[in-house]
Structures are given as structure tokens and as C-alpha cells.
Design a protein around this nucleic acid. Structure first.
Length: 878
RNA sequence: GGAAGCUUAGCUCAGCUGGUUCAGAGCACCUCGUUUACACCGAGGGGGUCGGGGGUUCGAAUCCCUCAGCUUCCA
């Protein structure tokens, strides 16, 4: 035979991927068919493929390929996200390496570099997806910062501003000193950190022995203190209220004030309030008007001149230094270890600095309501639905969304300022100038269009990606175009639970706000890919395998199967390369089954001896297909795959093929070969969504007849459920059990499979074994079958159901071993009978349980009684 | 501190509304097998008192309570 004994993925993958591309099988245009649409969660342009992408995109590809094969007009829109902080950081680093400082560049020049970088590296991740087999419509590839999509972002900003849902204001924001930008609440990751709690003495003005002690984790901010607060009910400090204390080291005086907010139990009961550097202090600062709020930190986290001391020091270095200075000055009472939650930037991992600044915000209340209802009412389904609670909680407590980012890479905020810093919101300079004119109410403006300047900040990347399902179909530029009308709302979204709020919730908001309709019907939330001992995969741990390396090692199909094998929706996946190995082995199994069938010579004179077997497999296929479809409907992909795997490996290869295959170098009858080829083709179609490359490769073999250029597995019809003969399935199960029992007899007695045996059957059940004789003979190597009505002496015997089987053995049977085996079985059956009897003699059971359950117990009893009798006879006969 | 979820074979997980086939699957493991598609294989096998305790019920892995452990989300 000319076909290799092992499937070689490398040879087929590239070939078929190009073929699919060439024939535009991934491309979709609106037509009369039902659409099935997925928009990809756009990966960052800075990203490279990691295991999370592999899982996520395998799932999307399985869904899209299946829909395509089921006759839907399948459209999977790919693209990337401009990731402003991450990309800007990358570009800044790259420039630094070239000796260029961002601060020396103009905005325009910097953006030139950034675009250059994007063109060069921004498409890597999409190329990697192709290796996985992703059948995206690449003609529709979009980028969140391309012109049309950017225009949509600007228009939405203006729209929401006019509606009063975007405002500008001084607020406490999360400042990322490394990215030098503010970020939204959702981008702050809280982690527990070991810290120190410093106890610092603040002396009462004019006194050298009277003082209060405050406990703080941030001694470097004392210079920004505005007051010391105690609880009004705290007796310890009653006499100090209204008195002044001086800040250590700098001597500035602040007042001791009272508010219920202060926890008397915590620390010393005295709280220093630093309104510019803590969100809670900020609230107190507002409440008691402790203005001006002293901000002693620069944008990069260094102390500024307002701090008076340690100017120019980084906040963490300053913390250590100031502790020492306090100690030397006699103000440090003690230091304790302390654990607390600290916020880190999602993008740069820098410790977040709370900072008061002027930013643009989106009001969330009105936007959130329809998005909340949408999920609660089931218009948008979350899979698994355990996420509904989390979603609801977030939506009900959502805070306004800070969308300003102090960066250049991104869509620039369309706000324009006149020389007096008054502002208008408009799309262009000209429109802004007109707007100023309008506001002036006919009065002559004192400045020209050239004197106004645009806001320096750009918008949060999520402010563009929340429009993704609409903007990829040009739904903003041209709201009534055929694409958006046809593809929107999309069907399924596959993403990680981590961005349920960042992205999913906001897309639902945008969908309702800008289209008056949900953006998708189902959200499939994948788990996190962890290593096999449960750790999150991360660069620093080095525990993440290289996805492309895996594909090279196990083949794309093998890796796809491996990823899905262990990933129920919403559960984390304990990834182990062994799963990929299993996937590869499965591909090889299919490959070799194919080699077998391909090798069969047909003798057209032969009768078909396999009618029974063929009928059985057809039923079994339909039974499995029913289960698989059911699993797909519930998005249980890993179970759908497992069911397919077992159907192919166990039922088709281990049973069906073994049943029908001709003896070595013997021909097969035409009908059997034809039926087997048909089954095989159905199997290829069934497996295609999971294993696109292998199935496409085999699909084109001449075994299946000539194919035209466009007849491909990728667009072949997915199997349709046919009829199931339950009786036949049951009977086949009996036969399989019988065969296993005979094999077991061989195994326990060390009889070679080559040695033919005789089989005597004492039929009690009415089963017609004669229809299966050829199968039994072939699979168990039985030379002669005799139907008997009495026990056969000197033979190994066993029961299948009610029927008793005997295998006369040439060698003497081991009486003791046989006795032991039968006694064990007898003991088990007697125990079983006892428990059934106990139920049946319980009046309350007989009265309360459903009739069919009681009847069934009676059946069990009858069967057990008859089996016990048979075994007792056998024992006596030994 | 608040909320949710999880705990079933060595590992990863199925077990829907309590009752035949309810204690299962895959991998791993053990024995045998170089038989003729495949050793990336075949045949057979061992292995769990369903986290602990209590309750409801004729009957609980499944429902309720409680304790313990783990995880996630929010403060």
C-alpha cells in the first residue's frame, strides 16, 4: 500500500488552507440563506497567540464550520484592536532603543512611528490563527483604529455628549504612573500585598509632649495632609477636637476634626486625610471643603515641589526615606507588618495612584438599564448562566466610565478649546468654530478658528471596541446597508469571563443605544487555560507552551481536539500536552481506518453477509448524532467531541470495521464496501468542524469518487439525523457483551486468539443469535456454534442476560477456579436479590413508588432468581 | 468584609426533574498480544462507602441544613 501508516499533518494543512482561501469558502456575502455570524474578540495588535486564543478561536471555528455545513451563510469577522496603552508603551520602548525620546517628538511624528509599527507587527496574531485553521472571512478584516471605525467612535462620542451622557469633570481617577494615563475602574486589578503600617506622631501645636498617633501605609503622602480625623464618639480625643497639630518634617499645621467615617478600632483611631491621594479622603475633603487639595505627586509618580521635601524622588523610594527621616526626628512610634489590597494597572502592572484630575466620563445609569434587562430577560444568553448573577451585580452598581486616556495612540477626543479654555464638542475644527459662534449668540468672536485647540487626550480602547459588532459592518457610517441589515444582530460571541464587563456588557449597551437591538444572542464564556497543576499560564512562570510549536508537533487537528477535550463552558481548563497527543492519536486512528477501507478489493460475485451489521451501525450513527446535536445545542462542545470520538473509535473502528472486514487478502462484497464508504464520508463530515484538515484531505480521495473543484468537506452537508432502530441497538449490545465474554474466557485461561473455539448456546430469552453467527465467529474466533437445551459438562460457561453459553475446552478446566468464580457471582446475586426483596416487601415502597418502577423491581427479582438457579446448577455439575 | 460557585476513580471531568441500564467516561495504571488498517495499536482487567456530619423520603451522588477545604467576582 502506498499510503503512509501515519498521518502527516504538515503535508495537508498548508495545502488545504490555501485551497479554502483560493476558493473563497470563508467569504460571505448577504444572500437568501439564514445568516450565522460571529465577530471575533479582536486581539491586541501587540499580542502574540497564546493558549487562551487557541481555545477561544478553536471554539469559534467549530461553531462557524458546523453552521456553514448546515447550510447557513456563515460569516466570521476577524480583526484587531489598537490597544492604546499597550501599543503606545511598545512603541515608546522601541523608540527608546533607537535613541528617540517620545517627549521630543510631535504628536504627528509619534503616530507615524506607531502606524509603522502596527503595519509591521500588528498582523502577526492573525497569521497565527490561520495555522490553527480559523475560517475567518479575511476579506472583512477590520481594525479598531482604521478610518471608518474611528469616525464611528467620534460620532458616538458626539451623540452621547449631545444626549448629556458624556460629561467632563474633576474626579478621583485611577492614575497609571507608568503608562502616564488614567484608566477605568475595570482596568484596575486588586491584589493583596504585604505592606507596613507606620505609626506616626503628630504633635499638637505648641506642645512637645501632647500628640496624636496616626497609622498609615503611605507615609510619603503626609505632606499632602489636609486634616486629622477622629470619630466624634471617641472619648480618647474629645479634648483635642478643633486643636491643631503640625505635620512632621514640614511643620504645616492642620486641624483635628471629627467624622463618623473614622473606624475607632482601626490603627490608633486617628486618621490622616489626604484628599488628593486617596478616594475616601477625597470624599471627606469634599464634605468638609478642605481645599485646596494638595497634589504632591507628578504624573510619573515622583514627588513634586509641593511636597517641600524629597522633591523628585519616586513614591516608593520616598516612602523608605521618609520613614527613616521620621524615625530620626522622633516622630515614628513603630512599624507593623500589614496586609492590604493594592490596585495595579491591568496593562502596565504599575501600582495605581489615586489622583484628582479633569477627565471625560460616560454616564452609565441610562445605558446600563437596557443592557441589564437584556440579559436578565434572556434576550442575550450567557453560557454558562452562572455568570448572570455577576453580571447583574456589576450592572446594578456600575459607576461612570472614565474614557480619557492621556495618550496619543487612539481616537482623539472631539472637544475643542478656545484661548479662554471654554470648550465645545464637534467633529472638526470648522464645526467647532461654528459652534463657538452659535454660543456667542451673534457677538463677534475674539479668536479665529486657528486659535482653538483640540483636547490632547484619546479615548479608552474599549470605547471603540464596544462598537465592534456594529462597526465591522459599517453600521455607523451607513446604518441601513445590506451587511448590517443581514448580519446584525450576530449569533454567538465567544470570549473570556474576565472581559464580561470591560467589553461584553458595554457591547450590549452600545447595541441597544445605537441599533436599538442586542448585538448577539449567545455569549459563550470560556474558562482560563491553566497548566496541569492549576496555575494560570503566564510569561513570568514560563509555563505556557508555544501554540505554534504545539501545532507543529501534534498537527492543528490534534491540538484543536486536545483543547476541546477538557473544556466545558465556563470552567477552567487544566491544559496538558497529553490531550494534544490524544488528539493526534485520534487523527491517526481515522487515517488508518481509511487505509483499511481503501485497501479492500471488491468481488462483485460475493453476497453481502453484513446486512445486519450495516443496519446496526446506521442506527448507532443516528443515535450518536442525536446526542451530539443535543450537546451542540447546549454549547457542550467538549461533550459533543467526546461523543464523536467514541462513535468513531469504539463503534466504527473497534466494532463495525472488525465485524465487516474481510479476512486477510480476501475481497469484500460490493454492498459492504459501498455502505462502509458512505459511513466513512458521513464520519468525515461529522468530524470536520473539529478536525478540518484531516477530514478535507481524506474527503478528496478517489475512494469517494470524483469531486469537482468546489466539492469540499468544508461545505459538504453536515449529517442529518435519520431513524434509530432501538431493538437492533439492544441486540447488538448483547452480541458485543457475548463477544467480550468469550474474549475474557480466552484471556483468563491464556488461550491464544488464534485458537478457534466452539460455542454452545442455551437460549432462554428468545434472542435470535443465528442472525449474528458470522459476527460472533469472526470477532471471537468461533469455529462452530451449537444450540443446546442442557448444560454442557467440562466447558467454561457464562451468562449473558438469561442465556447461558458454554465453551468446551480441550484442556481440563480448573474446577477450583471455576468454583470460586461461580461462588463469587452467586454471592453477589444473592445480595442483590436481598436488596430487591427488601424494597418489594416494604409496603410503603409498593404504595408510593410509580407503577413502572415497582414493575421493574419485580423484573429484576425474576431475573436474579433465574440466574441464581442457573449458577447453582452449574456449581452442582462441577 | 459581601456574593456566587466548586468538592464524584491516581488525573481531568459527565451524572438533566431523587428510583431500571446509577456509581460512569477519557487519560493514566496492570496483564496478555509484533494477528493481516493502526504499538500514535488490539484484547482483557483493577480502582471511588460520590469532602465530613445531620435531616427530608419507602428510596439521596442527586433535595434541605451544617461544618471543612478550594476557586472566582465585588468591596
Amino acid at each position: 500500500m502506498s499510503i503512509a501508516t501515519k498521518y502527516n499533518p504538515k503535508e495537508t494543512e498548508e495545502k488545504w488552507y490555501s485551497y479554502w482561501l483560493e476558493h473563497k469558502f470563508f467569504h460571505s456575502e448577504p444572500d437568501e440563506r439564514e445568516p450565522y455570524t460571529i465577530v471575533i474578540p479582536p486581539p491586541n495588535v501587540t499580542g502574540v497567540l497564546h493558549m487562551g486564543h487557541m481555545l477561544n478561536n478553536t471554539i469559534q471555528d467549530v461553531l462557524i464550520r458546523k453552521a456553514r455545513m448546515q447550510g447557513k451563510n456563515a460569516c466570521w469577522v476577524p480583526g484587531t484592536d489598537h490597544a492604546s496603552i499597550a501599543t503606545e508603551a511598545k512603541v515608546v520602548t522601541m523608540l527608546k532603543e533607537q535613541g528617540i525620546n517620545k517627549a521630543d517628538l510631535s504628536r504627528e511624528k509619534f503616530l507615524e512611528h506607531a502606524w509603522e509599527w502596527k503595519e509591521k507587527y500588528g498582523g502577526i496574531i492573525l497569521e497565527q490563527l490561520k495555522k490553527l485553521g480559523a475560517s475567518c472571512d479575511w476579506d472583512r478584516t477590520r481594525f479598531t483604529m482604521e478610518e471608518d471605525l474611528s469616525e464611528a467612535v467620534i460620532d458616538c462620542f458626539i451623540h452621547l455628549y449631545k444626549k448629556g451622557w458624556i460629561y467632563r469633570g474633576y474626579r478621583m481617577v485611577n492614575w497609571d504612573p507608568l503608562g502616564k494615563t488614567s484608566i477605568s475602574d475595570e482596568e484596575v486589578i486588586r491584589k493583596e500585598v504585604n505592606q507596613k503600617l507606620y505609626y506616626i506622631k503628630y504633635f499638637v501645636t505648641g506642645s512637645t509632649d501632647k500628640y496624636v498617633t496616626i497609622a498609615t501605609t503611605r507615609p510619603e503622602t503626609i505632606m499632602a495632609d489636609a486634616a486629622v480625623f477622629v470619630n466624634p464618639a471617641d472619648e480618647r480625643f474629645k479634648d483635642l477636637l478643633g486643636k491643631k497639630v503640625s505635620i512632621p518634617l514640614i511643620g504645616r499645621e492642620i486641624e483635628i476634626m471629627a467624622d463618623e467615617y473614622v473606624d475607632m478600632e482601626f490603627g490608633t483611631g486617628c486618621l490622616k486625610v489626604t484628599p488628593a491621594h486617596d478616594i475616601n479622603d477625597y470624599e471627606l475633603g469634599i464634605k468638609y471643603d478642605l481645599t485646596p487639595f494638595l497634589d504632591i505627586l507628578d504624573d510619573d509618580g515622583k514627588l513634586n515641589e509641593k511636597a517641600e521635601i524629597l522633591i523628585g524622588e519616586d513614591r516608593f523610594i520616598a516612602r523608605k526615606k521618609i520613614a527613616k527621616m521620621l524615625e530620626e526626628a522622633g516622630n515614628l512610634e513603630k512599624v507593623e507588618d500589614y496586609k492590604s489590597q493594592v490596585g495595579f494597572s491591568e496593562r502596565t502592572d504599575a501600582v495605581i495612584e489615586p489622583k484628582v484630575s479633569l477627565q471625560w466620563f460616560v454616564k452609565m445609569k441610562e445605558l446600563a438599564q437596557p443592557a441589564l434587562d437584556s440579559v436578565v430577560d434572556g434576550e442575550v444568553k450567557l453560557i454558562p448562566d452562572k455568570f448572570i448573577n455577576t453580571y447583574r451585580h456589576w450592572m446594578e452598581n456600575v459607576r461612570d466610565w472614565n474614557i480619557s486616556r492621556q495618550l496619543w495612540w487612539g481616537q482623539r477626543i472631539p472637544a475643542w478649546y478656545n484661548p479662554k479654555d471654554e470648550w465645545v464638542v464637534a467633529k472638526t475644527r470648522e464645526e467647532a468654530y461654528e459652534e463657538f459662534k452659535k454660543q456667542a449668540n451673534g457677538t463677534e468672536l475674539s479668536f479665529s478658528a486657528n486659535d482653538i485647540r483640540q483636547d490632547d487626550d484619546v479615548m479608552d480602547t474599549w470605547f471603540s471596541s464596544w462598537l465592534w459588532p456594529i462597526s465591522v459592518f459599517d453600521g455607523f457610517k451607513n446604518p441601513d446597508n445590506p451587511d448590517i441589515n443581514y448580519y446584525y444582530p450576530t449569533n454567538d460571541l465567544v470570549t473570556a469571563p474576565e472581559i464580561l464587563f470591560f467589553w461584553v456588557a458595554r457591547m450590549i449597551m452600545a447595541g441597544h443605544e445605537f441599533r436599538g437591538e442586542k448585538p448577539f444572542s449567545n455569549v459563550y464564556l470560556t474558562g482560563i487555560v491553566r497548566d496541569k497543576i492549576g496555575r494560570k499560564m503566564s510569561k513570568s512562570l514560563g509555563n505556557s507552551p508555544d501554540p505554534i510549536g504545539l501545532i507543529e508537533q501534534y498537527g492543528a487537528d490534534g491540538v484543536r481536539v486536545g483543547m476541546l477535550m477538557s473544556s466545558p463552558a465556563g470552567n477552567d481548563l487544566m491544559f496538558d500536552e497529553a490531550y494534544c497527543e490524544q488528539g493526534r492519536n485520534f487523527a491517526n486512528k481515522v487515517w488508518n481506518a481509511f487505509r483499511l477501507v481503501k485497501g479492500w478489493e471488491v468481488d462483485s460475485n460475493l453476497e453481502n453477509p453484513n446486512a445486519q451489521t450495516i443496519a446496526w451501525f446506521e442506527s448507532r450513527f443516528n443515535e450518536a448524532l442525536t446526542e451530539i446535536e443535543h450537546n451542540f445545542k447546549q454549547y457542550r462542545l467538549s461533550e459533543a467531541l467526546t461523543a464523536s470520538y467514541k462513535l468513531v473509535w469504539d463503534d466504527f473502528c473497534s466494532w463495525y470495521l472488525e465485524m465487516v472486514k474481510p479476512a486477510y487478502q480476501q475481497p469484500v462484497d460490493a454492498e459492504t464496501k459501498k455502505a462502509t464508504i458512505q459511513f466513512f464520508e458521513q464520519i468525515l463530515r461529522l468530524l470536520h468542524p473539529f478536525m478540518p484538515f484531516l477530514t478535507e484531505e481524506l474527503y478528496h480521495d478517489e475512494l469517494f469518487g470524483a469531486r469537482t473543484e468546489k466539492e469540499c468537506c468544508i461545505v459538504a452537508q453536515y449529517p442529518v439525523i435519520g431513524s434509530v432502530n432501538e431493538e437492533l441497538l439492544k441486540e447488538a449490545e448483547l452480541i458485543k457483551t457475548l463477544v467480550s465474554e468469550i474474549r475474557n474466557v480466552r484471556n483468563t485461561r491464556q488461550i491464544s486468539p488464534k485458537e478457534a473455539l466452539n460455542l454452545n448456546i442455551n437460549v432462554q430469552s428468545g434472542t435470535d443469535y443465528s442472525k449474528w453467527l458470522n459476527v460472533i465467529s469472526k470477532l471471537a474466533n468461533i469455529s462452530e456454534v451449537v444450540f443446546v437445551t442442557e448444560k454442557v459438562a467440562g466447558a467454561a460457561n457464562f451468562l449473558v442476560g438469561k442465556d447461558e453459553f458454554f465453551i468446551p475446552l480441550a484442556q481440563n478446566i480448573d474446577v477450583d477456579a471455576e468454583k470460586e468464580r461461580l461462588t463469587k457471582e452467586l454471592e453477589y446475586l444473592e445480595g442483590f436479590l436481598k436488596s430487591v426483596d427488601a424494597k418489594l416487601s416494604n409496603e410503603r415502597f409498593v404504595q408510593n413508588a410509580k407503577a413502572d418502577i415497582v414493575a421493574n423491581e419485580r423484573n429484576k427479582k425474576a431475573e436474579a432468581v433465574s440466574k441464581i438457579a442457573t449458577i447453582k446448577e452449574s456449581l452442582a455439575a462441577l
